[in-house]
Design a protein around this nucleic acid. Structure first.
Lengths: 177, 177
DNA sequence: CCACGCTAGTTAACGCATGTACTAGTTTCA
DNA sequence: TGAAACTAGTACATGCGTTAACTAGCGTGG
């Protein structure tokens, strides 16, 4: 008797139940794929939510705000376009977000020298200090999460996740913009 | 010379650059954890975005709408609370979403028998047909994604992702509501 | 050399998720 | 039994991300 039979349904017994019904009642064939993507999605959401709630929100940053500041911090002054690519956001999202981060005094926006259309994003001094500070907490928390896996397992996981998304030229993926 | 040195910055050369700067310039120690969570987040976002854009949006469903219908479909009539747990959404999100899905004629909402406060969600006939239909496309797409990994690799990936999130009782994680 | 097409960024309208505060039903236990 | 604590669901205000339409600068080829 499984948890799903007893009425105590958690994520894993749901996955089990879903697999069973999808294959037996409906004849769908790619159970493992479903299980993989369900698990991937869930893991990412749980970790992200925890980091946002425990590290960033208390300091007044949204998850996206942090990501934008993070890439700007480490990849130097960046064109907005590039920042969008690196963070995986749309250009519009970067534009909106930059507006609020500029008014918070964390980010600075100046016209690009070579291309008159472009905008260069960089951290203000305050923004830089803030990132060093915030990342300290962020990195400790990351380590707590990753720490349940051995370094070996972490490397394998990174490798597999990477393989999952980089071999995607084999079919045409819908990406942003 | 790496891509990041040459100015052609993509996700991977950014991660490399970030690792270098975080450890050499700032002395942060948990590089692998950062890399893991960055990769996890990115993989999940890419796959999710693709599924939503290629399968669900064209049929008028949002990603969350699909997830709610999916658990309702397979886990039978469900209390809203349970649906929130299984999908990882907040109770408020389920409530909002249910409202629109009900008015789309896909979902039905009736008062729970045993508990007067609760609401039971189930699919309408239309909703059921729709899910069988939509999931066909969804599952094919999932298979295209998962297909770049061998079944063995997929199982390892699932196992590692699971381990990452289930051993989290060791520290107090911030979850939804 | 200039018109057309392309690209960077912004804006506006919209959808959706969140937290908070509230209503109402349930459970506990003195 | 009845008051207090708790729980399920919802309404509301807010914030953020999306797409689509627009502005403005770039660059190419007739």
């Amino acid at each position: 008797m499984t948890a799903s039979d007893s009425g105590e349904l958690d994520f894993w017994s749901f996955v089990e139940l879903a697999n069973r019904r999808l294959s037996r009642e409906y004849g769908f064939r790619h159970q493992l794929a479903t299980e993989l993507l369900l698990t991937l999605n869930r893991a990412s959401n749980i970790v992200t939510y925890d980091l946002e709630a425990s590290v960033h929100r208390p300091r007044g940053l949204s998850w996206s705000g942090f990501r934008l500041l993070f890439v700007t911090w480490l990849a130097g002054p960046l064109e907005a376009k590039k920042a969008a690519e690196l963070t995986g956001m749309s250009r519009a999202a970067v534009s909106n977000l930059a507006k609020t981060l500029v008014s918070d005094g964390l980010l600075s926006r100046e016209p690009g020298a070579r291309d008159g259309r472009s905008v260069l994003l960089s951290l203000t001094d305050t923004g830089h200090q803030e990132m060093v500070e915030v990342f300290r907490a962020h990195n400790e928390r990351e380590d707590e999460w990753a720490g349940v896996l051995s370094p070996e397992e972490q490397r394998i996981l990174i490798m597999l996740l990477d393989k999952l998304v980089t071999n995607r030229d084999q079919f045409d993926v819908r990406g942003r913009n």
